[in-house]
Amino acid sequence: MNEIPLHPANASLVLCPDGPILVRGDFDVVMPSGEPAPRQRKTVALCRCGASAIKPYCDGTHKMINFRTEPPDVQGRGTSERPN
Rank of each mutant, 00 (worst) to 15 (best):
M64F: 03
V14L: 15
T69Q: 12
L13Y: 13
P56I: 08
C58W: 07
P56G: 02
M64W: 01
C47I: 03
V29R: 12
P36R: 12
G78C: 08
A11I: 10
R77Y: 00
P20M: 04
M64R: 13
P32T: 01
A53P: 07
N66M: 07
S12W: 03
E35V: 01
A11E: 12
P56K: 03
S33Y: 04
S80L: 06
P56D: 07
T61S: 10
C49V: 05
S80Q: 07
M64Q: 08
A11K: 14
P36G: 06
I21M: 15
P32V: 03
M1R: 13
P8E: 13
G76I: 13
D18H: 09
G34S: 05
C16Q: 15
M64D: 10
L13C: 10
S80N: 05
R41F: 04
S12L: 07
E3D: 14
F67N: 06
E3G: 09
R41M: 11
F67V: 05
K63Q: 11
P32D: 08
R77K: 05
Y57C: 05
N10I: 07
S80K: 09
L15N: 13
V14I: 12
F27W: 06
L13T: 03
S33H: 06
Q75T: 10
P38Y: 01
R39Q: 12
L15F: 12
I21W: 10
R82C: 00
G60P: 03
P17C: 03
R48A: 02
C49I: 09
R77A: 00
K42C: 01
A9R: 12
P83Y: 02
R77L: 05
I4D: 13
K63N: 08
Q75E: 03
A51W: 11
V29H: 03
M64L: 13
V14G: 14
L13W: 10
N10S: 11
L22V: 07
P83M: 02
P71N: 05
M31W: 09
V74L: 13
A11V: 15
R48V: 04
P36D: 04
G60Q: 02
L6W: 04
V29S: 06
R24N: 10
T69C: 13
A11C: 14
A11H: 14
E70P: 01
V14F: 14
D73I: 04
D59Q: 08
V44K: 11
E70G: 00
R48K: 03
E81C: 00
H62V: 00
A11F: 13
L15Q: 13
A37C: 09
G50Q: 11
S80F: 04
H7S: 08
V14Y: 14
P38V: 09
L22N: 11
F67Q: 05
L6R: 15
R24E: 10
R77Q: 01
F67T: 00
M1D: 09
G34R: 08
P32A: 01
A51G: 11
R39L: 09
V44I: 08
Y57L: 06
E70N: 05
D26W: 05
C49G: 06
S52R: 00
R24Q: 15
N84Q: 12
